[in-house]
Design a protein around this nucleic acid. Structure first.
Lengths: 230, 230
DNA sequence: TTGCATTTCAAACACTTGTATGAAACTATC
DNA sequence: GATAGTTTCATACAAGTGTTTGAAATGCAA
């Protein structure tokens, strides 16, 4: 087992390069050069390039999902088993938005990597994303408890739109800044979260003002993953 | 000039293959095999692979943008120079959604190609998308006329969210179907357009019901483009 | 130390990719 | 029908890719 030095060096270098230059532009040779390890080390430790990418993405996804569920759980507990729809939406979009737009993380490799993953959508990542359904179902369940009697389809649409606004903001933040000539402040993450939550709640309820809900978190270091982790 | 047979065969074959299998999976050799032309024909007629992709995307984009502006113009004229915000949003998201989700176009190559372009985001396409700002500004201008006195940033956010919901629905339609186990009907395009318009308008105005606005169109055939067309 | 498993390394492999070349085939004009 | 311009074609090129190999180095237990 040794010290895992090589393994972690590869992960760190790969995440940094992918974050900076995108998946299409970075080769294994770039990665091993950055990590100061041998080319064969990638295949030795990860099996293949795709599995390396998958591990990077799974690690970061798990962290986000964990944050989401923690925030959801906290909201449900403090609400006696039933969270407000605002709090649920906040738990859904908050972690992702904070992770990718947050000021403290502006230079964060993890954040920029996740943005890349969202923009470029390379095969191994797409495969993983397709397994995220189970995770989202937990939010649908919470929404059902929060808005009983509502048609399920409406809940799905609300969830879908919330993710739409959240992901599109991350993905197109540069373009929105350019289009608005800086008038849309992409640095005030809390304001963005509130905005997305407000619109999502309106989409679900047909138009009441939204409240607020707190939350915070940190990016975890890499650990070893078992396959099929997500 | 001859008959352009080879040129159009390449365009058609390329669009079909890209639509079916994505940009990452399709090589020039695949394309020329499908088109029954020689490998060198691509570089002869288009200069490079990227320029071929760009031409495909520009053609389809121009068509959509034209539809959007037509619908916007019609709405403004029938409103005496000032269209309702519902009509503006409808003009913005209607053509794209109809183009990519429409039932008559379900099997349409053009539609599937545009979905791919939205999902995979390959460099030549990204370059083109970055020039779309001018086009969107026309919608911002219309929105400003429709909602005078409103902060510009609010208008940009509203436009941004409208595009977010529209694009995300196209991009993730399979996932939404799967997540909702078919309860969200992705075949009823008009209902989807109305839904997106309604939420967009709520995002902009803070919650009034939305009206409707008509529109329709067809996919144009390919013509020769001058460079820098979009 | 000896022996065994893990890890590193340089080198090569096998393959695919987009692009370039130069001759051949074709087309239209005189 | 000869000529010039355009288009097609088979083929080769050059470069880059992820992956494999087998030996060398290293770490660890007895």
């Amino acid at each position: 087992m040794a010290s895992d030095h090589t393994r972690s060096a590869i992960l760190a270098a790969a995440e940094r390069l992918y974050a900076d230059r995108g998946f299409g532009d970075v080769t294994l040779r770039d990665i091993v050069a950055e990590a100061n390890v041998n080319l064969a080390a990638v295949n030795y430790h990860f099996g293949s390039k795709d599995e390396l990418i998958a591990e990077l993405f799974v690690t970061r996804s798990l962290a986000t999902n964990r944050e989401r569920l923690n925030e959801l759980k906290a909201a449900e507990e403090s609400g006696g088993g039933r969270a407000s729809i605002e709090a649920i939406m906040h738990a859904l979009v908050g972690p992702t938005l904070r992770g990718c737009l947050g000021p403290d993380r502006e230079g964060s490799t993890a954040a920029r990597f996740m943005i890349r993953a969202s923009i470029e959508s390379v095969p191994p990542i797409r495969r993983i994303k397709n397994r995220e359904v189970d995770h989202l179902r937990k939010f649908v369940a919470a929404m059902r408890r929060s808005l009983p009697g509502r048609d399920d389809a409406e809940l799905y649409w609300g969830l879908h739109f919330a993710l739409a606004m959240s992901h599109h903001t991350i993905r197109e933040k540069e373009r929105l800044t350019k289009l608005s000539e800086g008038q849309c402040d992409l640095n005030d993450v809390n304001a963005i979260v509130d905005r997305v939550v407000t619109v999502s709640v309106m989409a679900l309820t047909g138009g009441e003002p939204a409240k607020k809900a707190p939350a915070r978190s940190m990016a975890p270091p890499y650990g070893r993953l078992t396959r099929q982790d997500l």
